[in-house]
Simulated scan of single mutants.
Amino acid sequence: MINFSAPDLTQHPPRSPRVRLGGFVHLPRLLDKARAFVAGKHGAYTYPCPMDERLFAFVGVSADAFLDAVRSGKSDTQMLAWLRENMSIPRAPHEILAWSEWLQDMAPGDPRRHGNFATEIERMAPGREDIVTTFDRLELDDFTSFGGQG
């Protein structure tokens, strides 16, 4: 059974980046990674990664402050309330929705990243043409890292 209050990311991946909390895409995954980081069970997952930094920049919260709040043992609901209370850039629901849709649909970006993206897809799932967004690649990587066949 997965203990989401202290996930062991050496045994299973974090939640999908598509899962939302309070409208924020990626936030549940970020919480899983931060909790695992605090417990020393983050495995190959990085905290904070560039995707995490995008969320922090959007709301104006630092990675260190977020991690300190996670260390206090707050639930997902309590962390959402903490985030809302500590945002230095207040966001309306429509802004959160638009940002979440943008992040979910984001592609690799510049030519170097496109090349790396293509190399990783070929390594994990040769012949797949349906992996086009960063979230697609993250989910594929989570799946194949724990024994799935791409």
Rank of each mutant, 00 (worst) to 15 (best):
K33R: 13
S62K: 08
S100Q: 11
R113D: 00
E122D: 14
M124Q: 10
P48S: 10
H94A: 03
N116M: 15
H42I: 12
K41N: 04
L83W: 13
K41V: 03
H114L: 12
H42G: 14
L27N: 02
I131W: 02
I121T: 11
S62R: 14
D130Q: 02
R91I: 03
A107L: 06
I89L: 11
M87P: 08
G127I: 01
F24I: 07
K74H: 13
Q78Y: 09
N116K: 04
H94W: 03
L27G: 02
D76F: 09
A69T: 08
R29K: 12
I96C: 14
G22N: 08
W102A: 15
G73Q: 09
L27V: 01
F66H: 11
N86T: 04
R29A: 06
H26W: 08
A125C: 13
D110I: 00
W82D: 02
V70I: 06
W99S: 13
R54C: 07
R35K: 13
K33F: 10
N116I: 09
A107G: 14
L27C: 03
H42M: 11
A69G: 05
H42R: 13
T133G: 10
M124W: 09
R71L: 03
G23K: 00
M51T: 07
D32A: 04
H42S: 13
P93Y: 10
D32Q: 08
